[in-house]
Design a protein around this nucleic acid. Structure first.
Lengths: 114, 114
DNA sequence: GTAAAACTTGACATCCGTGTAAGGGTCAAG
DNA sequence: CTTGACCCTTACACGGATGTCAAGTTTTAC
C-alpha cells in the first residue's frame, strides 16, 4: 500500500500522512527507491490519529498515548494519569458542545422560515 | 463596566474582548476619554461568543448568526439554512467525540495502574 | 525505452484566536 | 497635583495541522 492508497482509504492527505510519520505517530517501510509502503493496519491507525486530533489532542500527546494501543505498553502511573486527564478533557468538551447545541437548536427553532 | 470588569466576569482576556469587537461580535460605548463601557448584558453575550467559538464556529459565522439573539432578526431562508448547517456540524462533532471518548476510556481502563 | 503518474524532500504560506510589548492616554483616590 | 491602576492603539509572534510549490526520483503502463 503506497501513500496515495492510504490517503484514499482514510481521507488524510499525503501531506498529513508524512507529517504523522514525522511526529512519530505512524511508521512505514520503504521500497528500494525510497517510497513508503504501509501495512493494512495503517488504515485503522490513521483513523485513530484523526479521531484523536479532532478531539483536540496534539501530536505530542498522541505520541505519548498511541503506543499503548498496539504494543503492550508500560503501565506507569504517569501514563494512567495522562490518559485520565485527556479523557476528562474530552468529556468536558462534550458537555460544552451539548450546551452549544442547545443554543443553536433554539435559534434554529426560532428562526425557521415557516 | 469597563473592559477589565468584563474580562473578570467572563474569563475572556481584554485582548479577546477587543478582538470580538473588531469582528463585530460585541459593541461598547466609549467614555469621553475613549475607554470602553459595557452593559450588563455583555457578560451573557461574551459567554455565548466563547461557547460558539469553542464549538468551532469562526467569528465570521458567529457574526452572521449572533444578531438573531438580540435583534428581531430577518427571518430568511438563508439564515435558517445557515443555522441548521452549523447545528448539524456541532451534532456530528459531538458524535465523533463520543467515539473518541470511548477509545480513551478503553485505554484508561486497560492501562490503569492497579 | 519512453511517457505519465505517483512519489520524494524541503521550504514557505495560511488560518485565526490569542499573547505580548511598546508608547502613550485616562481615571479615581489621596 | 500626583500617583498608580487601568485602558488605548498598533504591531508583531505563535502554535499546529495542513496546503502548496519546486525540483528531482521512482514506478507503472504501454
Amino acid at each position: 500500500m503506497r501513500i496515495g492508497d492510504l490517503s484514499a482509504a482514510t481521507g488524510a492527505s499525503p501531506r498529513s500522512l508524512r507529517y504523522y510519520e514525522d511526529q512519530g505517530l505512524l511508521t512505514s517501510s520503504r521500497s528500494s527507491g525510497g517510497q513508503r509502503h504501509y501495512a493494512e493496519a495503517a488504515v485503522e491507525r490513521v483513523r485513530l490519529i484523526q479521531s484523536l486530533l479532532s478531539a483536540g489532542l496534539n501530536s505530542a500527546t498522541i505520541q505519548d498515548v498511541l503506543p499503548c494501543i498496539n504494543n503492550e505498553a508500560i503501565r506507569t502511573p504517569w501514563l494512567a494519569a495522562r490518559l485520565t486527564s485527556e479523557l476528562q478533557r474530552v468529556e468536558s468538551q462534550i458537555e460544552d458542545l451539548h450546551r452549544t447545541r442547545t443554543v443553536l437548536a433554539g435559534l434554529v427553532k426560532q428562526y425557521r422560515v415557516e
